[in-house]
Design a protein around this nucleic acid. Structure first.
Length: 580
RNA sequence: GGUCCCGUAGUGCAGUCUGGAGUGCACGCCGCCCUGUCAAGGCGGAGGUCGCGAGUUCAAAUCUCGUCGGGACCGCCA
């Protein structure tokens, strides 16, 4: 139908008769005998010179046949790759007429209410931004697929209809017609199946897998999302990390043209100590400074009873953070669990040294003041924020403040990939049962050096679990799995799950391990998130063709909808009246 | 479940604090003019349930309450 695409023609094509197809980007009339029509497809725009009698308007779909000519002296457009030429003696065929688009087709649409864009997503998708993002996404998928295939991973599709498992995220349920009153669940992840593929001797499995979780939506969370899901047999942690790295770095290189530096590694403990979070953004410093020992003998009550005291320093933040902003940060700190926040503005003292301007300055001894300055390497004009609490709270609150104050926008480089390793096997105690709660999932292999502490000091046991982090976003996580039924039983017991309950909840999954399970481990990372960061987008909706807004209600299709009573009847469902 | 912000023409805004006729701007749209524009230019025109519902008031886009919708975040996401 066409000889060229709209972004292709150059000065070399002058003289050729060409056929272009696309959408009318804009029309400029100049009296009775002259009008310019910019025809657009995903490759770009070409200017066509037509007679004003031709009635084409914005977003009409057209087929234009004409001759490529060099533009008249002085009328070339340097902003367009095709700006040196135009199409003359055009024969214009209208393939589809169109109503005016509901929003501008250029960058101004970035300011339009997202709901309007989503309601007319098919129009929004024509824009440069969305074309670019979806093509980046396609490159990411292609790079990952070939990276895994080249490493001898086998692509296997696992079922979308699976049994409901009560663990983890809330599931989407699918009623059964053959067995009314019973339900399938859509997979939160292919976790269970991929481990069974290892039992089945696939050795190396991967899948670009759709996962579904019925949890509240966020900028980085949709009901449905895509993961690179993989699992390997006869491996240790390093083997898994290396294999995943190839996929992630290939994808990044495919998009940016630059292969990222090798992925850094950091233990969970170090990440918490230094950055106060298990997904540190390494693009900026502002590391947490340890001050606990400084206040070992302090007379300041807020600090004397705290297990951990740490600080962050805001370079030259003293003037920028007035009373209102500091109060805001304090409220923030409290909302994340701190009892309070101490701020110190560093000033030159009259004696020539440094002193603090702060409501609590008078409670700090000269030695403590000096020690804080030394530890934080503060200079006049800096702002120091101190949190004193139990170790985890101190770290987490400062981690939040650090991100709030220093974190650059997603679109700013560089890309900082990071492995966070040695996560704790258990995090916290379940308030109702008094049993430890798993940090990852109950099939996660404890660190071999910590096996003897499982019963005696479970909270200190590290897991062979690891996360991949990019610029402060958690891309994914994985672990070496338990393949030994005896060890699995020990872990279940610690979690308060007896054998009967384990069989009831995970029976179909545990049974196969009696038939010879290889040691194995794996990983999964979110393709939406990786693509968003590589595209410089703050929100994964911008890299998804048809995403849902925060409510989960689709403004284009109106899903979810009611269904006919007969349909419900068939699956044995009766809908309750809405609760008031 | 919670906190905060937003809702005025197809789109983006101003007006809301301090109540006084839908008062206004830009883009888009429709018509006319225009032979070198390229987010063209000129002239004219159409287009509004101020999200919705109550309340206060002589009078509500504006104040109050409720509700719906959107966004960011917390909870949640093994």
């Amino acid at each position: 139908m066409r000889t060229h695409r709209c972004g292709e023609l150059r000065i070399e094509n002058v003289g050729e008769t060409v056929i272009l197809t696309g959408w009318v980007n804009r029309r400029r009339e100049h009296g009775e005998h002259l009008a310019f029509v910019d025809v657009r497809d995903h490759t770009g725009i070409t200017q066509c010179v037509v007679d004003n009698a031709v009635d084409v308007r914005a977003e009409y779909v057209v087929k234009i046949t004409g001759t490529v000519v060099e533009r008249v002296e002085g009328t070339a457009n340097d902003d367009l790759p095709t700006g040196a030429i135009e199409i003359k003696e055009c024969d214009v065929e209208v393939l589809s007429i169109a109503e005016p688009p509901p929003f501008p087709m250029d960058d101004r649409a970035d300011q339009v209410d997202e709901l309007v864009r989503l309601r007319h997503r098919y129009v929004d998708l024509r824009r440069v931004r969305m074309q670019r993002n979806l093509r980046i996404r396609s490159s990411v998928n292609a790079a990952i697929r070939s990276a895994m295939f080249n490493q001898e991973f086998v692509e296997v599709e696992t079922p979308m209809l699976m049994p409901s498992t009560p663990e983890g995220a809330r599931e989407f349920l699918v009623p059964s017609r053959q067995k009314p009153g019973n339900f399938y669940a859509l997979p939160q992840s292919p976790q269970l199946y991929k481990q069974l593929l290892m039992v089945g001797g696939l050795d190396r499995y991967f899948q670009i897998a759709r996962c579904l979780r019925d949890e509240d939506l966020r900028a980085d969370r949709q009901y449905e999302f895509m993961q690179l899901d993989m699992e390997m047999s006869f491996v240790d942690v390093d083997d898994v990390l290396s294999a995943v790295e190839v996929g992630v770095l290939d994808a990044a290189e495919a998009v940016t043209g630059v292969r990222p530096d090798t992925v850094e590694r950091m233990t969970w403990r170090d990440a918490m100590e230094r950055f106060g979070i298990d997904k540190p953004d390494l693009r900026f410093g502002m590391e947490l400074v340890e001050l606990t020992s400084v206040f070992a003998e302090t007379g300041f009550k807020a600090f004397s009873s705290a297990a951990a005291i740490k600080a962050i320093k805001v370079d030259q933040g003293a003037d920028e953070y007035g009373r209102n902003k500091l109060d805001g940060l304090t409220d923030e700190a409290k909302s994340f669990g701190a009892k309070g926040m101490v701020w110190l503005k560093v000033r030159e003292s009259e004696a020539g040294g440094l002193e603090f301007e702060s409501p609590v300055a008078k409670f700090l001894s000269a030695e403590e003041t000096a020690a804080i300055v030394t530890a934080t390497e503060a200079v006049a004009g800096d702002l120091v924020l101190i949190i004193a609490d139990d170790w985890l709270t101190t770290c987490e609150v400062l981690g939040e403040l650090r991100n709030r104050i220093g974190r650059p926008p997603v679109s700013e480089g560089p890309y900082k990939y990071l492995w966070v390793t040695d996560f704790p096997l258990f995090v916290g105690i379940d308030a109702t049962t008094g049993q430890p709660k798993t940090g990852h999932h109950p099939f996660c292999q404890p660190h071999p050096d910590d096996l003897d502490k499982l019963e005696s000091d479970p909270m200190s046991v590290r897991a062979q679990a690891y996360d991949l982090v990019l610029n402060g976003w958690e891309l994914g996580s994985g672990s070496i799995r338990i393949h030994d039924p005896v060890l699995q039983r020990r872990v279940f017991e610690l979690l308060g799950i007896n054998e009967e309950e384990a069989n009831r909840r995970f029976g179909f999954f545990l049974e196969p391990f009696k038939y010879g399970a290889p040691p194995h481990g794996g990983f999964a990372f979110g393709i939406d998130r990786l693509t968003a960061i590589l595209a410089g987008e703050e929100n994964i909706r911008e890299v998804i063709a048809f995403p849902k807004p925060q409510s989960g209600l689709d403004p284009m299709t109106n899903a979810p909808t009611e269904v006919d009573a007969s349909v419900l009847e068939e699956v044995g469902i009766r809908v309750l009246p809405p609760t008031l």
